[in-house]
Design a protein around this nucleic acid. Sequence first.
DNA 1: CGATAAGCGAGACGGTACGTCGAGTCTTGTG
DNA 2: CACAAGACTCGACGTACCGTCTCGCTTATCG
Lengths: 194, 194, 194, 194
Amino acid sequence: MAKPPNPARRSESSRQAILAATGELCSQVGYGRLTIEAIAARAGVSKKTIYRWWPSKGAVVLELLGETATIATAPPDTGDLAADLHTMLTEIVDILTRDSAGTGVISEALNDPDLARDLRERLIQPGIDAFKQRLRRAQDAGRLHPDADLDVALDLLYGPIYHRMALHLGMPGPAYLGSLITHALRALTPPTPH
Amino acid sequence: MAKPPNPARRSESSRQAILAATGELCSQVGYGRLTIEAIAARAGVSKKTIYRWWPSKGAVVLELLGETATIATAPPDTGDLAADLHTMLTEIVDILTRDSAGTGVISEALNDPDLARDLRERLIQPGIDAFKQRLRRAQDAGRLHPDADLDVALDLLYGPIYHRMALHLGMPGPAYLGSLITHALRALTPPTPH
Amino acid sequence: MAKPPNPARRSESSRQAILAATGELCSQVGYGRLTIEAIAARAGVSKKTIYRWWPSKGAVVLELLGETATIATAPPDTGDLAADLHTMLTEIVDILTRDSAGTGVISEALNDPDLARDLRERLIQPGIDAFKQRLRRAQDAGRLHPDADLDVALDLLYGPIYHRMALHLGMPGPAYLGSLITHALRALTPPTPH
Amino acid sequence: MAKPPNPARRSESSRQAILAATGELCSQVGYGRLTIEAIAARAGVSKKTIYRWWPSKGAVVLELLGETATIATAPPDTGDLAADLHTMLTEIVDILTRDSAGTGVISEALNDPDLARDLRERLIQPGIDAFKQRLRRAQDAGRLHPDADLDVALDLLYGPIYHRMALHLGMPGPAYLGSLITHALRALTPPTPH
DNA sequence: CGATAAGCGAGACGGTACGTCGAGTCTTGTG
DNA sequence: CACAAGACTCGACGTACCGTCTCGCTTATCG
């Protein structure tokens, strides 16, 4: 029945227009008030064209985020672990602070399992992999305890950001971020030999 | 113009019926598919009555959570800090796992500043206060570093839960929670004198 | 069941306030947009008080019309039949032109048999009786054909007014009214003996 | 802003279903209790589709009347003026008696200038034109006074019907209609030469 | 190289829920 | 017990978007 469209014949210009319109509207009215109807109108595109390629507005914004993001790239490695972590965390904070697209997709995904899966697979997991990769290097360099659980590390470092976002406790500034990193590393670092 | 109704004349039975209906529907169809229309119908109540006392469906569910919650109560204090933290964290995990009401309100609040404020003031802040109160006792008992920043402690302990919730990384089980607590405490504990 | 209230204890001041408010609102917003709610608010009266004494907004306006009207009084009799008819018809035209109360009640009565009955019995029938009384005098004076049907006379004289009102053909001015009277009387007058 | 829809793409089947449902409901519950909601439900049509093409329920019923009506057609001309008038007047009486659609639209139009204009232009004026055309022929044939004012004729003949409708005096039967026609013609006919 | 099938814009369609309005009823407290 | 105040249920309003569905119109393969 549901015959999937042929991606080869897809109009790239329409795709671009849709993502552009989505971005503009999202900054103007916020993710909550964003509608497919408005995106189509602003992009000069048929609603059908949007529904042909995306299952929901969340999926469109997700793709927009993927377009913009530098997240999934290789982690920075300056040799200074704390500084690199600071860079990585700051990027997430920026995304969640910049406009409502980031928090919007996260909020939508909380009620939409399909979107949640896409979000995790396309944006989150690559970021996690990069993070772990960087930490493993630090571990190899003896900077972290050799038995340190990297999942725990992930939670300790990224957790505070999402905690503060979810409960509106104020996004962490650079200094506070530094403090968090210090504490987290202390939990993961082998006791300094005296 | 918009004259606020007189709370003294409010029908308590309607309020109860609305909250009950909200709870039932939320478990049945999930927060996302919950509608004011359905709540009114199931509660045998006029939509107007709902709109008279709550600004949005999120606000209704928030009040329902507040009704149910034991969160804001005094924190447990068995003397065993790690065990008490486990109890407190488990409660949050339960709330976020039980049904879609908890995550639903959080997701809604991400796009609705008014709801976000209510959520923080009515549910979150009391919990934070209780948490800090417990930690301060531990600090006084020398269990924590005297200079430990309790905000950092909060973030390190609760952050992982919201991190995993927001990104659908799987909610932490008791064991993993224990591991997190161990790590977090290590970051907050004075170095054991050798 | 439906226990009728005791008219003796009725508050005359409330009644006055309701009718006054009705009149003012009717001129301001028109019969169509008139609501019981607004009448109660403007009159400083409980909605219940209105419903206690009147079955519908149409009934209130009807009573207001009855209060204002001079219709039911004795017909003018200057001896000049045509002039007297002109006076009587002009009064109706005035009522239907002045504000939306007159046409409003008529329009409501078209869909509300109870109101229709009240309208006819309280306002219309007395007017008809007065009209016929005047015509009968003319008949006795030989001014009309002795066999003339007064119902027909009523229809011929008043019909045009309601015709033009109902179909929005423009209410007749004094001159046109005169022409109508002339024609109607011609139909009712005995052929002049040659 | 308010972009009018493209009539070319209009669904004729929806239009038919709407008018049919309107007719059925109007006979069943009467014009007063007719609602757009019920029409949409019965017609299996979205409310939006009704609002897209009609401004109000009155407009829908008006179109239904226009669909049904034979009014605007050429007037009958059997050579017998009185008989032809009887035919024409009877048709109006029938429409106003058949169901509540006719009186309903008239009552609505009394409070809605836009509907009133549509009613007059689409239904009434063509009927008036046909009526006058027939009378002009009678005039040419010497059956009416050459100076007779056809507007007066219209008022004298149709007026009684609307008078009795508006004031609920009982719709005229065939005999009474004949009597009215006789009288009206007497007012419009040249004095018979002796 | 011309048919033909696809994506496309436009936007009408059946739906669902929205948030508001007013009707008419009911409750509470006052005089 | 009539009244002012106003909360209540009910039902309809008119609107907004949803996601689906024709329509013609490119446009880009493939027989």
